[in-house]
Design a protein around this nucleic acid. Structure first.
Length: 432
RNA sequence: UCCGGGUUGGGGUAGUGGUUAUCCUUCAGCCUUGUGGAGGCUGAGACGCGGGUUCGAUUCUCGCACCCGGACCCA
C-alpha cells in the first residue's frame, strides 16, 4: 500500500458527486451572469510569486526546476495568471472582461480543517469596470451561488468594508500612527481581549483615549459616524463608494446578505477598494469561508494599462464545511434506470436491449460478473435500479422478456420484439 | 515550526503482560443460476514502525512515522 500524499485528497464516487454538484451550481450561476470560462496552466514561472513576495514564499510553493532549468511552480492562486492573460490581450478583449474558472491550486501549507495542500477554487473576476455595479455584481453572484447551493441568510453573511476606511481614519489622527500595525491590531481584535487590543493600538501610536474611541467607531460600523469623525477626502470617497456598492447590491438582491464590518481588514495586500469576507452566521466555521474585493492596481503591476478589477474566489473546502453544517451538502443517491438481468446464455438479446436503452439516454447496467439470478437482483437493488428487465431462457422461449418494477416488485411479460419498442422510457406501469 | 489528542481487519469498536484478540458493519460466496430488500451459514481481513524492560509486549516505556484538531501563516 502506498500512502496518499499529505494534504491531497481522494474523491470516491459519493464525494465526487457532491463536489461535481457544488461546482455545477457555482459555474452555472456564473454562466447566468455571462461570465465565460477560462482554462489556465497548472505550472507557472515561480518568479510570478517570488518577484512580488520575496524568496521566502518558495517555502509555501510546490516549486521546482524543470528540465530546461526554468524555475517553475504549481500555481498557488489564479490572480497572477489572469492578470498575465489580461495584460497579454489587453487591446483585443472587450470590456468588461468577465471570467470564471474552477480548478485546483497547490500550496505547501500546514493541513488543517478546511485547508489542504491541493484545493479547489472557483474564481470569478471582472476587469475593466470601476463602477460600483461591478463590485455589486460580484456580491450578487456570490449570494446567488450560495443560495443556489441551498444556503439562506441564516447560514452566511458577507462582511463588507472598504480598504480606505480603516487606513483613512488612522491617517486622520494628528499623531504619528503606524497604520499597518494598527490594522494588524484590528485584524486580531476578534481573538484577543479588549485590553490587549487597546494596548496594541497604543503601541501603534494612538493615545489611550484615541484607542477607545477608534475601537468604538470601527466596531459600530456606522458610516455616518465614520464620515463625521474623519472628514478627509480619502475617507469621504471610500464611504461614498461603499454606499454606492451597497445600493447597487440592494437592487441586485444581495444587500440582505451584507453587513458593514469595518474590522474586515485582513486579506490580500493587493486589494484597493471594497473588500468582503463570507462568514458562517452560526459561527461554527470560525475561519472566513472566502473573501473577495477590488484590486484596481494589480493589472498595472503586471505591466498592463491601468485596469480596474474586482473578484472573488470561494474555496470549495471551507464551502463544503459550511454546506455540511447547514445540512445542505448534496448527498449522492445512485440512480439506475434499468438493470437487464440475464439467465442462461441470453447475452445477444440482453445486449441488444441494453444498447437500445442506452441509445435513448438511459442509465443501464447488465451482468458482467457471471452472477446468479438472486445475486443479480441483489445488485440491481444496490444500484437503485428502477426497472429490471429479465432476459431469461424461459422468457425467450416464449419470445418474451419480463419487466419488473423494483419498488413494488410487480412484473409483467412483454414480447421481446416490442421492447423497448417506441416508448421513450418503458416501465412496468406503461406495459402492464 | 510549535501546542494538544490519537493510531487494533476496508469502516466503527471491545479487550488483555501469557492458549485461537471481541462485537457490529463491509466485502465475497453459499443456502437459492427464475425472484431483491429479511434471515442463516461459510470465508476474507487488524494490534502503525523501531528500540528498551521482560521468560514472554498489541498491552508498560522511549523514539519515530502517520492521522485529527489548533496556533502561526493565509500572497
Amino acid at each position: 500500500m502506498y500512502d496518499r500524499i499529505k494534504g491531497f485528497r481522494d474523491f470516491y464516487p459519493g464525494e465526487m458527486a457532491a463536489r461535481r454538484a457544488t461546482i455545477d451550481v457555482l459555474e452555472g450561476t456564473a454562466r447566468e451572469y455571462g461570465f465565460r470560462e477560462i482554462g489556465t496552466p497548472a505550472v507557472e514561472r515561480a518568479e510570478m510569486w517570488t518577484d512580488k513576495s520575496g524568496d521566502e514564499i518558495v517555502d509555501e510553493l510546490y516549486s521546482f526546476e524543470d528540465k530546461s532549468g526554468r524555475h517553475v511552480t504549481l500555481t498557488p492562486e489564479l490572480t497572477p495568471t489572469v492578470a498575465r492573460m489580461v495584460v497579454a490581450k489587453q487591446q483585443e478583449l472587450s470590456k468588461p472582461i468577465k471570467w470564471v474558472s474552477t480548478r485546483p491550486f497547490w500550496r505547501y501549507e500546514q493541513v488543517q480543517q478546511g485547508r489542504y495542500r491541493e484545493f479547489y477554487q472557483t474564481n470569478v473576476d471582472i476587469f475593466g469596470s470601476s463602477e460600483p455595479e461591478a463590485d455589486a455584481e460580484i456580491l450578487a453572484w456570490a449570494a446567488d451561488a450560495l443560495t443556489g447551493l441551498g444556503l439562506t441568510g441564516e447560514h452566511f453573511e458577507f462582511r463588507v468594508s472598504h480598504r480606505d476606511i480603516l487606513g483613512g481614519v488612522l491617517e486622520s489622527y494628528d499623531t504619528d500612527v503606524d497604520t499597518e500595525a494598527a490594522i494588524r491590531a484590528v485584524d486580531k481584535s476578534d481573538k484577543i481581549s479588549r485590553a490587549e487590543y487597546h494596548d496594541l493600538l497604543i503601541e501603534a501610536g494612538l493615545t489611550a483615549d484615541q484607542a477607545a474611541e477608534f475601537d468604538d467607531l470601527i466596531a459600530d460600523g456606522d458610516l455616518d459616524e465614520v464620515e463625521a469623525f474623519a472628514d478627509t477626502d480619502r475617507v469621504t470617497a471610500a464611504v461614498e463608494n461603499l454606499r454606492n456598492v451597497l445600493a447597487a447590491a440592494e437592487d441586485f438582491g444581495a444587500r440582505e446578505y451584507c453587513t458593514v464590518s469595518l474590522e474586515t481588514a485582513r486579506g490580500l495586500d493587493y486589494y484597493t477598494g471594497v473588500v468582503f469576507e463570507c462568514f458562517d452566521s452560526a459561527g461554527e466555521v470560525s475561519r472566513s469561508i472566502f473573501g473577495g474585493g477590488r484590486y484596481d492596481d494589480l493589472i498595472e503591476g503586471f505591466g498592463g494599462q491601468p485596469t480596474p478589477a474586482v473578484g472573488v474566489a470561494p474555496g470549495h473546502a471551507t464551502l463544503s464545511l459550511l454546506l455540511q453544517r447547514a445540512g445542505v451538502w448534496p448527498d449522492e443517491e445512485v440512480q439506475t434506470d434499468y438493470y437487464v438481468l440475464q439467465i442462461g446464455d441470453t447475452r445477444p438479446e440482453a445486449a441488444r436491449i441494453v444498447r437500445e436503452l442506452r441509445e435513448q439516454g438511459h442509465v443501464v447496467e447488465t451482468d458482467i460478473a457471471g452472477r446468479s439470478f438472486g445475486a443479480q437482483l441483489d445488485y440491481a437493488d444496490s444500484i437503485n435500479a428502477e426497472t429490471v428487465v429479465i432476459v431469461g431462457e424461459q422468457d425467450l422461449a416464449n419470445d418474451e422478456v419480463t419487466i419488473k418494477d423494483m419498488e413494488s416488485g410487480d412484473q409483467t411479460q412483454v414480447p421481446v420484439d416490442d421492447f423497448p419498442g417506441d416508448l421513450e422510457r418503458p416501465t412496468f406501469d406503461d406495459l402492464a
